[in-house]
Amino acid sequence: MDNLNKKDKAQLKELKSPMAVVDWAVNWFRKQSIFMLAYGTGCGAIEIPPTVTARYDAERFGVRGAATPRQADVIVLSGYLAVKTLKRVIRTYEQMQEPKYVIALGSCPINGGMYWDSYNTIKQLDRYLPVDVTVAGCMPRPEAVLEGFMALKDKIQRGEAEGARDYRDNIEKYKNNQKEIFGDKMLPGYTCDWYFSDGGSF
């Protein structure tokens, strides 16, 4: 495990109780293995291929593509989100398994970017989904994208990347915001009903 870098080691030394060590270790595994679902929503989709291929090689940081939301840890939203797309994004996000993270690329998901007055895109992604990391730029280059992943890793290690918890706890707020834009085309009940009950697990 040569990739326990100095920062990790320093953190590890500060921990006192054994449970804290276990938590730390779990987080370490989580941050070292990130299955990414790249959702090419906008212009930024083009920046993902160089990020994962020979030039920038995200795999060396343990970032790897996943095929379906069930397997993914992070969803990367690359750019503006049309209302229609957002619906699919929410669907996909809800299908992912906790702990799950959201990385939003570009200025569009932050404040609408150059689509600030579009009739058809949403302006502020974190009204609808809990965004863990946003990478600003129009469009952020792969270096910046990787920087975003590093920021996410840091957050995971600190145990602060808990967007999923936030979403679950404030589900009513998020759903109301979503309802504002979808209106009567809201996602059907079966997709999110379990957020409101305990979901019947075994």
Binding site: W194, G199, S201
Partner: peptide, 15 residues
């Protein structure tokens, strides 16, 4: 394990 609705399946983001 969360018991999901029958239609709640990985279906390429579609509903």
């Amino acid at each position: 394990t969360r018991n999901l609705h029958r239609l709640d399946i990985a279906y390429a983001g579609e509903l």
